[in-house]
């Protein structure tokens, strides 16, 4: 589904990703864990080109992603037009939700299919309402993001990602900005989604979630992958045990 080889990325001569290789299979749920500054989010954001790697090959669904960074390490304008296909195949859920504050919940869901994918609004509306119903927010369709709690906003953001009918969804620390009591309502929805066979790549600090829901766990440190494999195996890795013991104190 997603293939990454030799991915390298630096910010001002500081190497954030060092020659990272990664393969994600269709339907796989992969959790990327590790300390802050390990390069987890950068790796995730390179997959849909929100960050542009300095070097490395990326394949998505059998297509190679060709890219040229501009001086700010972002996509050139030409590539932004050329690579819309990539963003339409791979959705993203952000730490800060990033719902558009000037649009209703329903309109937030419709932007992707209607504006980006040129689907008919009349066809997309029932799908959007269906998605909202599945996360228990059908009565919030006409509300604005500012009227919702963080957990509700993140559930809407997951719906927005699903509206693209993506081949995979990237989650960038989806619960890190939430109050503790709101974390579970988002994790529950992600766990349900994982059971439907959606391909998911999740950067998270929720160890319990990673252990229970992920098919595979990737542990990163200092811009490289230290350990990867089934959760039970990876959680026995000595480096990870050191990291996890820091977390629990």
């Amino acid at each position: 589904m997603i293939g990454i080889t030799g991915l390298t990325k630096s910010y001002n001569s500081r190497e954030v990703l060092k020659d990272v290789d990664l393969r994600i299979l269709p339907g796989e749920v992969v959790a990327i864990i590790g300390p802050s500054g390990a390069g987890k989010s950068t790796l995730l954001r390179c997959i849909n080109m929100l960050e542009v790697p300095d070097a490395g090959r990326i394949h998505v669904d059998g297509r190679q992603v060709f890219y040229t960074p501009n001086a700010r390490g972002k996509l050139s304008v030409v590539d932004q037009f050329r690579l819309t296909w990539l963003r339409r195949e791979i959705s993203m859920v952000f730490q800060q939700f990033n719902l558009w504050p000037h649009r209703t919940v329903l309109d937030n869901l419709l932007e992707g299919p209607v504006i980006s994918k040129k689907q008919k609004r009349a066809d997309a509306v029932p799908r959007a309402l269906e998605k909202l119903r599945s996360v228990g927010l059908e009565d919030k369709a006409d509300a604005y993001p500012a009227d919702l709690s963080g957990g509700q906003q993140q559930r809407v953001a997951i719906c927005r990602a699903l509206m693209m009918d993506p081949k995979a969804i990237l989650f960038d620390e989806p619960t890190s900005a939430l109050d503790p009591e709101l974390v579970n309502e988002v994790l529950d929805i992600m766990a349900t989604l994982a059971k439907t066979g959606m391909t998911m790549v999740i950067v998270t600090h929720e160890m319990k979630f990673a252990r229970e829901v992920a098919d595979r766990v990737i542990f990163m440190e200092h811009g490289g992958i230290v350990a990867e494999g089934p959760p039970d195996e990876v959680f026995q890795h000595p480096r990870l045990r050191v990291y996890a013991s820091h977390l629990s104190h």
């Binding site: 929100l50 952000f94 994918k117």
Partner: peptide
């Protein structure tokens, strides 16, 4: 910036991003 990245993430091109997010905000 996050709202602009969200526009990127649903596959809007730079023109759509300008008229749907940058201009209204």
């Amino acid at each position: 910036v996050g709202h602009l990245e969200a526009a990127d993430s649903v596959g809007m091109n730079p023109l759509q991003k300008f008229f749907r997010v940058t201009a209204p905000e």
